[in-house]
Design a protein around this nucleic acid. Sequence first.
DNA 1: AGCCAGGCTCTCG
DNA 2: CGAGAGCATGGC
Length: 304
Amino acid sequence: MDFWIKPASPYDFNLTVGIYGKFQGEIVDNYVDGIYRRLLNIADTYTLISVKSIGTVDKPKLHVSVDPETISTEQNLIMRKVEHMLSTNVDLKSFYRSMRNDRVLSEIKDELYGLRAPRTASFYEALVIAITEQQIALPMAILTKERVVRRYGEMMTLKGHDYYAFPSPNVLANAKVQDLRDLKLSRRKAEYIIDFSRKVTESELNLDEIAELSNEEILGILTKVRGMGRWTVEYAMVRGLGRFDALPANDAALRKIVSTLYYEGERVSEEEVRKLLGQWGEYKGYAAFYLLNMGRLKQNSNSC
DNA sequence: AGCCAGGCTCTCG
DNA sequence: CGAGAGCATGGC
C-alpha cells in the first residue's frame, strides 16, 4: 500500500524528523538515510510505515509506503496517524510573521524554516516518555526509553530488520518495579509508569477523553496522578497532542537557552520563561521548540 | 570530586 | 505553607 501526503507549506521533512536521527537512529522512531520508519499500533494491529520526502520545502510532498506484510487496517486510519505524527497540518505562517518581532527568533528564521514539531503516536506514549525524561540528561533518558522499548515493546522482524512499537499500557501495567529498575529507571519512575499504566488499562483514566479537554482541565486531572507534575503534563501536551499554546516553562534545557539568548547567561526562573514566552500567545510552545532547536543546530552541525 | 542533567515526592519546620 | 533532601546515573 502506498499513498501520498501533502503537508501545509512550508514543511522541511528532514529537519522535522531529523530530531530522531540525532541519537544515531532511535529504534522506535527510526530515521536513517532520509527515510522515517515506525511500527505503529493502530486499531490493535501492527503496521510498519516508511516515509520519505519527494517534494521541496515550499512544495512539500511525502511518500508513505506500508509494508505489505503488515497491512491490516484502513488506509484512512494510517494516513491520519501519519499526518498527526509528522504535524503536516500545522499552519506556521502567522507564527513566522510574528517571529520577525523578536531579535533572537528572526535571526534563525531561515535555518529553521519549515521545521515542525513531530508528535508521538499516542498521548500515553508522550506521558511515559516525559516521565523517563524527568530531571535526567536527555541522551541518557533516551537510552533508558530504548531499553524499555526493547524489553516491553512489540517487535516485528521484516526483511532482516527488527522494528519495535512503543509498549502498550497493559504490558507496562504488568511490569515489575525491579525489572524496570534493571533497565536503569529509578524506583520512583518505575512506580510512576506502572501505576499510571494501570490507571489507563483499568479505565480510571481515559486518555482519549482527556485529550479532548482544555489545557487547564488536562493539567488539573493529570497532575493529580503520582509522578506527573506540571512540566510532565505540559511537555506531553506539546509532544503528544500538539498543543503549542502549552509551555513546559520549567524545562531545564529551555531555561538554559533562554538564559543564554535573552539574559546574557543569567539564570532564569520558570516564571521568567513563562513571562517572556507568553508574548507568543497560542504559539508559545512553538517559540520554545524553535529556541530549543537553535541549540540543537549549533551543537550538531553534522546532524541531518 | 562535585555538580548538573528537558522534576517530582516526601518530610520537616 | 515553603524549603530542602533524596532519587539514579553519566558527563564534564
